[in-house]
């Protein structure tokens, strides 16, 4: 799998491990995990996947990446 698909897979995999949380909590937990452990380039790429309406992202992953994008934008200088 190429690196973009791999990042989508990774985001979805994190999502599946937070499946017992409600949607909002899951999205925040996934986003927090990505912020804590992913290199900024990986984060940009996964946000880019959301912008491109990537269909492989699970719904909860999409919500999480949206949280990530909003945080990313608010943190931008």
């Amino acid at each position: 799998m190429n690196s973009r698909d791999n990042l989508i897979y990774m985001a979805n995999q994190i999502a599946r491990n937070f499946a017992t949380l409600d949607d909002a909590a899951a999205a925040n937990a996934i986003a927090a995990h990505i912020v804590k452990y992913w290199d900024p380039r990986m984060r940009v790429k996964i946000i880019d996947s959301l912008e491109q309406n990537e269909s492989k992202l699970l719904p909860v992953s999409r919500n999480a990446v949206a949280v990530l994008r909003d945080t990313h934008q608010s943190d931008a200088p």
Binding site: S3, K36, W38, D39, P40
Partner: peptide, 18 residues
Amino acid sequence: PEPGLRIPNMLDAAVDGE
């Protein structure tokens, strides 16, 4: 202040030319 690449991420990034 940002986390870096983990080993598998380094290898992926290398294949991507980054």
